[in-house]
Design a protein around this nucleic acid. Structure first.
Lengths: 219, 219
DNA sequence: TCAAGATGTAGACAACTGTATACGAAGGTG
DNA sequence: CACCTTCGTATACAGTTGTCTACATCTTGA
């Protein structure tokens, strides 16, 4: 009986990470998400703890990441690069504009349902104690918000809100949707209600900005 | 030279806690806030670490709290019971209604400036890994939101929004203001801008709700 | 005044941690 | 084939942690 287990083909797909056949790197990421989601902050995890949960030797961690920081940033990158373009494509899909907010909220909720730990950990670290991770997640949020602002300005024509106002609105919107995913994950039965409320929130903010502008109470 | 230090009079005031003459309990709370604000989650602190920072023996912690959980809840209670009534009194002070949002935001920002660690830790734990603390902070937020909803409904008269709509709005508002305090603490120079944006946010949400209701797009 | 309770300290224990050093097995490339 | 790189393992060490037991000192109030 050999002391080291046989190695298997490496899978990089998001979904295939939990498979016990996945490569060590993937198993460590899956373990980190699982542990951080149900216990403590990513950076507060222990490499031994991770190794244990991944079924690996503690030292194996250092074969793939030189620190917990590096592992965390890898996770953030992975999901952000997957989700951001998808959101943009919803708005470019030719759906009637008035249905776009709700469709977007529903898409994000579905995505969160698919990768619950990623969202739990993501929101946690957005407000967490590591400035490094906080900044990384914020940058992704800002990017999505920026793209949203561009699209709103493009579809709205020159009659509507100024760029300054729209850009002031979109970041709170993205942040709010992000936060609401946790309410959904916490109690999926509330889905319909949460989708409605979140959509209301978006519509009310935009409608309110238009109203205030028309009343010369803003800019 | 005695082995144990002389004890001093106990001060319970929020502000006097940092004084090196304060009682052990207050010193431990101050140490916990300081450490948690700049390092990791409250529950992830070590009792030895706390003792060190407070200048006390590790075991002294157990004289005052039976767990980190208990200490954390004590901190939350203390600040919530201090801040919530103050916010309500702003709205009952007879100020012109249109100035109340901005005044409230300014008051909260001032308060956050006075107890920065409390806000840093508060927002952290609101999204943290302890369901217990999360629930506690949420309950306080909901309470403030509920009181705000009552006051809006009272001053607005029967012509305005329904209770259901107002209650749907106030929780996101309180949450948003809570989050913005951290942006302010992070970069106090942005204060004027942040006060303006946060006020805009509140006004836009309410104006938007009114507009949507008038257009029959909501309820 | 003196006993009780609250508050603090000291020392010890086993458990766990990060990480350094060293070795083994598999895959790819010459 | 031989060789290097990648991935994984085993062992070890020193430092830190939570918490138990035992003891010291201050404050209070009967």
């Amino acid at each position: 009986m050999s002391l080291t287990k046989p190695r298997k083909a490496t899978r990089n797909t998001l979904a295939e990470r939990e498979a016990p056949e996945a490569g060590g790197r993937e198993r460590l990421i899956a373990a980190a998400l699982k542990l951080a989601a149900e216990k403590r902050s990513l950076l507060a995890l222990g490499v031994r703890e991770l190794g244990r949960m991944a079924g690996l030797n503690p030292n194996t961690f250092y074969r793939h990441f030189k620190s917990l920081d590096e592992l965390s940033l890898a996770i953030i990158d992975e999901f952000a690069q997957d989700l951001a373009p998808a959101l943009r494509s919803i708005r470019h899909s030719g759906l009637p504009v008035e249905t776009v907010p709700q469709r977007t909220v529903e898409y994000v909720f579905d995505y969160a349902k698919q990768y619950p730990e990623a969202f739990i950990v993501g929101v946690r670290e957005l407000h967490g104690s590591s400035g490094r991770l906080q900044q990384a997640i914020r940058a992704r949020i800002r990017q999505v918000a920026q793209e949203l602002a561009e699209d709103i300005l493009a579809t709205q024509g020159p009659t509507g809100l100024s760029a300054a106002i729209v850009e002031e609105l979109t970041e709170p919107i993205v942040e709010h949707v992000f936060h609401r995913t946790l309410d959904y994950l916490e109690d999926p039965k509330r889905r319909a209600d949460l989708v409605l409320r979140t959509t209301h929130f978006i519509e009310a903010l935009i409608a309110g900005a238009l109203t205030l502008k028309a009343q010369k109470r803003w800019n």
